[in-house]
Design a binder for these strands. Structure first.
Lengths: 229, 229
DNA sequence: ATTTATGCTGACCATTTGGTCAAGTTTCTT
DNA sequence: AAGAAACTTGACCAAATGGTCAGCATAAAT
């Protein structure tokens, strides 16, 4: 027993350093994969971004595929989160608004993760198919039933809940995935607080009014004027 | 004169065959590029998809980059179209509904074009930057002024028109770009008329109600029940 | 101090990549 | 019929790709 203390997550100084290196590589890989896609990212480029020799990446992750898969895996949790507030007893307007805001914040803070995800789905989502058909579908089903409950109780306008989710995902993630297009149209060098505030306000308006809802006080865009002035 | 009849678009049998070959190559390239992205598509794969030797593609387009650029160029027109109905004298609800329907139809009929476009924007849109900053921005500005006119006239709810466009683009294109995810969540092998009808109805509802509008007769989803039954 | 397990990396390899080219074939003009 | 122009393609190339591995360094355990 005394000699075999190598429990997988024993936080010895060894395991800690190993985890740090893994994070270092993954962080760099997220940047490179998000900017160039899977095929566009060469092991040489990934190694350069991480500041390590190529062989070192292979030591930690084996293959490029495995590194990519490890990266995607880390994102899945992010995707499923932020639906907490959607519960039967919640106020529909508040719950949906919180979800939209969380998604927008995610687009702002983790745009590379969003792009990585988009890249993978565009490629046919080979690595995500199990997750889509499993946990994601289950979550959407569960939350859709909550929304259908709200509708049945007359608390919001009849709406296809699954397609409502697709719409929210699309509108919020576009601020990460299609940032170059938005920047060009708005004629700004990059998306800042102003653009995200306007975007959030617009998405909130479409979702809430679209579902026949309004936030407490009847203000659909509570933070907007405050930010603008 | 008689000998130099080779006007660039003289539709001689020569020029016609040349154009046909170009289309044959472009059509195959759209498939391959859309499925694998620019870096993921090899000249060998492109040639195989077109049923031609590799050197033949180089004869017509020079480089892979040039072939890709030619392909993207063809899509730009598609992008700018479908805003015709958005004019000062139009009915806001009808105009926006027509635009949403046109965009949805485009996602259904040309999903590969949409994916190609998405792939390019994810890569930072190097080839599209001039188009974004030029014709696209100009078009959006023009149409945004129309919408602002509608708002000023009290014909629809106050809405940031540029962000409204971003939202419409995102919601409609997601049915092409993120099809694998939507299919998995809905548990269908592919998106058919039913899914597009539901999607269109939901997007229309969010956009129209979101903007304080409704279609003539107050029915937000005019075609929905007809299709379902 | 010595052994042992783990971490690290330069040099190397087979394969694939985008692209070229010379030698052909076909089609048009005269 | 002859020549010119456009088209086609197998064979080839230098460069880049993902991946391997033997040998070395470092730290842990004895």
């Amino acid at each position: 027993m005394s000699s075999s203390e190598a429990e997988s997550d024993a936080t010895g100084p060894r395991a800690r350093q190993r985890a740090a290196r893994r994070r270092q590589i993954l962080e760099a890989a997220e940047r490179v994969f998000a900017e160039t896609g899977f095929e566009g990212a060469s092991m040489a480029a990934l190694a350069a971004a991480a500041g390590l020799p190529k062989a070192n990446l292979h030591y930690y992750f084996g293959t490029k595929e495995a590194l990519y898969a490890a990266l995607l895996n880390d994102l899945l949790d992010l995707w499923l989160s932020a639906t907490d507030r959607i519960r039967p007893e919640s106020d529909p307007a508040e719950a949906l608004a919180a979800y939209v805001r969380a998604k927008m914040a995610w687009s702002r803070e983790r745009p590379r993760a969003s792009k990585l995800f988009a890249n993978e789905v565009l490629r046919g989502a080979p690595h995500l198919a199990p997750h889509f058909a499993g946990p994601l579908r289950a979550l959407v089903e569960e939350k859709s039933r909550v929304i259908e409950g709200w509708i049945a109780a007359g608390r919001m306008a009849p709406t296809e809940p699954r397609h409502l989710f697709f719409a929210i995902w699309a509108m919020t993630q576009t601020y990460a995935d299609f940032a170059p297009q938005i920047e060009a149209v708005l004629d700004v060098p990059s998306l800042g607080p102003r653009e995200f505030a306007d975007g959030t306000a617009t998405v909130l308006q479409l979702v809430l009014r679209g579902c026949g809802l309004s936030l407490a006080g009847g203000r659909v865009q509570p933070a907007l004027e405050a930010i603008r002035n």
